[in-house]
Amino acid sequence: MYSKTVMDHFKNPRNVGVIEGADGVGEVGNPLCGDMMSIYLKIKDEKIHDIKFQTFGCGAAIAVSSMLSEMAKGKSLDDAKRISNKDVADALEGLPKNKLHCSNLGADALKLAIQDYEDKKAGKKRPTPKRAEKHEHTHGDKCYCPYCDSEVEEGATFCMACQTDLEEAH
C-alpha cells in the first residue's frame, strides 16, 4: 500500500523530538481524522538550522513529517515556505489517494512554525498554538472530496460521485 520511501521514513523517522527554546513552533491537527503534528525550528541567519517534529498519526503522517523535516533543514525561510504538500508527497514517491490529506498537515505545520518565528521577531505577541479542528479549504473557495476529488457542496457529508462518507474531512 505504501511506497518503499514512505515505509523507510515511517520506520526510521528523521528529526524526531522537541527543541527546547525553539525559535518557532507550529502545531496542526485534526482530531477527527486523528493526525496531529508539532514542528520546532531553530533559525540561524534566516535559515532553518535545526528542525524537530512530533506526530500522532498513521504511517503516512509520520513519513510526511520525517520527509518534510529533511526537505526543510538548511533551507532559507523563503525557500522553506515554498515547500508544498505536493512536493512532500512527490518526494515520498506518492501517497495513497485517501492519505493525501496527511501531507497537508506537514507543510501547514512548517508554515505555522515559520510564521511563529517571524511574528516573534517582529515583536508580535506569540499566538497560542491552536490545533485546527477542520481541514482548511486548500483548493480555494470550493470543497472537494478527499477520495475522488469531485466537487462537493460546502458542508456535505456524503460524496455522490464516489458514494463515500465525508463528515468534516472534505
Partner: peptide, 24 residues
C-alpha cells in the same frame, strides 16, 4: 483507526461507547 479504515473519521462504534477521538 480512521486512517486505516480509509474513512477519515473515528469509528462510530468506539465513539458510541464513550471513547474520545484520540483513544478511538
Amino acid at each position: 483507526s480512521a486512517c486505516a479504515a480509509g474513512a477519515l473519521q473515528a469509528s462510530h462504534v468506539l465513539l458510541s461507547i464513550g471513547r474520545d477521538f484520540a483513544d478511538a
